[in-house]
Structure formats: C-alpha cells, structure tokens
Simulated assay, not measured.
Amino acid sequence: MRWSAFSLFGLLSFFACLPQANATGEDYAVLIISRERLEVPTSCEIGVYIQDQLAGRLLQEQTTSFNLPYGKVSIRLKLEPSQMPGCKPGMLAPPAQEITLKAGSVVKYRIASNDQRGLYLRPAALEY
C-alpha cells in the first residue's frame, strides 16, 4: 500500500511537470488558400511558399490549409514546372506577400492573377 501511494504521487508530479497542451489552439491560426475559381488562366500547378519554403501545390479547383503561428507570414506563389505544356518556371522570383495572422483566427484567401502583380492572394469569405 505504501509503494502504491508513493507511485501515485510520483506519477502525478511527473504529469504536473509536463508543459500543458493548449486545447483551444490559441497559439496558432489557420490559413486556407484556395484555387476554386478560374481566376488564374493556367492549368499549371501553383506552388505555395511559406517563409520561402515550399509548403504545398495547388491544381485547379483545389484548396489547402495550414496551421501557422500567429504573426506576420511571408507567402509567395509560383508556377511550378510540370508535364503540362507551357508550365516552365520563370527566372525571377515572384514577389512575396505579407499576411498578419491573429491567434485563434481562421482566414481564407484565394489565388488571383493580373498583369502587374502576377499571382497574389485575395481575401475570401469562409462560406461555411
């Protein structure tokens, strides 16, 4: 009986020392990027670079999401090389776009394109 009580207190003190997991997810934000609409007139894959690291690729009619730490995040969109005709990477790095995420928020952007800016993210409604 004496060992079981010491074991129980030892086990409880071990769990008290562990860092507490934040179940509400307030340390992170969710970033949703979609290519649902036909705003980008190409069938090439689009690479999503977060902090200059390839984080995902999107084809037409696809959506992806990322759990990111809150704060400023650098997003870069780039046409990726593939087997489709005309899908060759460019020589210049496309400009990055800064997005500020708030803790616990869910934000959605969709990929758009124009002649001056190239590929960029446009805020979109969550619609759910």
Rank of each mutant, 00 (worst) to 15 (best):
L11W: 08
L119M: 02
S34A: 06
K72I: 08
K88T: 01
D115C: 05
S82D: 13
L119V: 01
G90N: 05
W3H: 14
A16N: 02
L12W: 05
C17G: 10
V48C: 01
P85V: 13
G71C: 04
V73M: 01
P41C: 13
Q53W: 01
Q116A: 08
A5N: 03
T100Q: 08
C17T: 11
Y128A: 04
L12V: 13
G10T: 10
A21S: 12
Q53M: 07
S7V: 13
W3D: 14
D115V: 11
E61M: 12
Y28I: 12
S74T: 08
S65N: 15
A16P: 01
A5T: 11
R76F: 12
Q116R: 12
S7Y: 05
A55K: 03
L121P: 00
K72H: 10
G71A: 03
R57L: 07
Q20I: 10
A93C: 11
L58V: 09
Y120K: 00
S7M: 12
M84L: 15
E39Q: 15
G47Y: 04
I50L: 15
K88A: 01
L54I: 02
S113R: 13
G56F: 06
L79P: 10
S4R: 10
P95A: 06
T24V: 09
L38D: 14
V48N: 00
S43G: 15
P89S: 14
F66L: 00
T100P: 02
L119G: 01
Q51I: 01
G10Y: 04
G104Y: 01
R37Y: 14
S113P: 02
V73D: 00
D52V: 00
D27N: 14
N67C: 02
G56Y: 06
L77I: 05
G71V: 04
R76Y: 11
G25W: 09
Q51N: 09
L59Q: 04
P94Y: 00
L101W: 09
S82E: 04
E127T: 11
L92M: 12
P94Q: 04
L58Q: 10
S65D: 15
A29L: 04
Q116Y: 08
